Simulated scan of single mutants.
Amino acid sequence: MTSAPRVERIEAAGRAAVGECPVWHAKDRALYWVDIPARRIVRLRPESGQRSEWTLPEQVACFAFDAAGSIVAGMESGLFAVTLQDAGDVRVTKLAAPRFDAPGMRFNDGRCDRQGRFWAGTMVQDMAQASTAGALYRFDANGTLSAPIVDGLITQNGLAFSPDGAIMYLSDSHPQRRLIWAFDLDTDTGMPHDRRLFADLNHHMGRPDGAAVDADGCYWTCANDAGCLLRFTPEGKLDRTVAVPAVKPSMCAFGGDDLSTLYVTSIRPASNATDNDGSVFALRPGVQGLPEPGYAGMLPVA
């Protein structure tokens, strides 16, 4: 039986209202993440504790780096190229925008597949509406935004890819759904097919928020509202539960020089929040992660 890893709050990271999308940038040896309502991208260098932040013109929910260090980001009105400059300055250029099927929408969870295509989904921000206007999109290396690949989503989340890139995971974290699906992914065309239920969190705990896949091919999901991480084997069997000291863990990512540290962002609830809620946490779960793929296209210098 695997012993429970020690979970540490990273004091230098500060607090976020809605911390999301942790990304380990190996070249910088730094962890990046977003605070969605604050319109902020944050960077922390764990060794020195140096923290930097950049405020964007719109809410930003997900992003990925390209080879030159520029960022493709999913924001409120579309996808943007973002250049982070010294002294907190930022430049943005709009790349593409889907047709939003309802008012009050924005991008939510997103990341690159193993071939460097950027995937991101949309949602209606007012979750009380339980609107199914959300959809998943693919932004390829040629700068082309796809039509909706998966539609009918309420709160799109949980994007992750198997080590060989042939399986794509996607979740809907809305309380009325709480489902994780797996798809076979054609790695040449970027088209998913054979959608199937991977895990139903109605039979476990929490809501399936952001996720990461480890080197063993196991899928880690943040169980929002349950204060824990759940790891599922490639067969969809729950094999580990790790408690974290925040009720709403939001997304996790492997980082550190050996990719053996699991970083976890969290959300600060509107009421009864503790000092831990909204913090970033770190733990060493005894497994390694995979390098986070970057965007394979060339972004314009914003």
Rank of each mutant, 00 (worst) to 15 (best):
H203R: 14
C222H: 00
L197V: 12
D200V: 14
A226D: 08
C222E: 00
G190F: 05
T241G: 00
P208Q: 06
E235D: 15
F198Q: 10
F183T: 08
V242N: 01
L201F: 12
L197I: 10
G206Y: 03
D214F: 01
F232T: 02
T187A: 11
G190C: 05
H204I: 12
V244Y: 01
G210N: 07
F232W: 10
A215H: 04
L201H: 12
L238C: 13
M205R: 15
A182W: 01
A226W: 07
V242L: 07
L230F: 04
A199C: 06
P208F: 08
D225E: 15
R177V: 09
L197D: 03
R240C: 10
D214Q: 06
F183N: 09
R178M: 09
T189V: 09
G217K: 10
D186M: 11
W220L: 04
H203W: 04
L179D: 04
R207H: 12
G190N: 03
G206N: 07
A211Q: 04
D184N: 11
T241D: 00
G236L: 12
D209K: 02
G217N: 10
V213F: 01
T233D: 02
A243W: 09
D194P: 03
R231T: 02
D200R: 12
D214Y: 01
D239P: 13
D239C: 15
D216T: 13
D209M: 06
P245E: 06
R195C: 09
H204M: 07
R231E: 10
G210S: 12
G210C: 01
G210F: 02
L179G: 04
P245H: 08
N202Y: 00
P208E: 10
D214N: 06
L238Q: 11
D209W: 03
L197R: 01
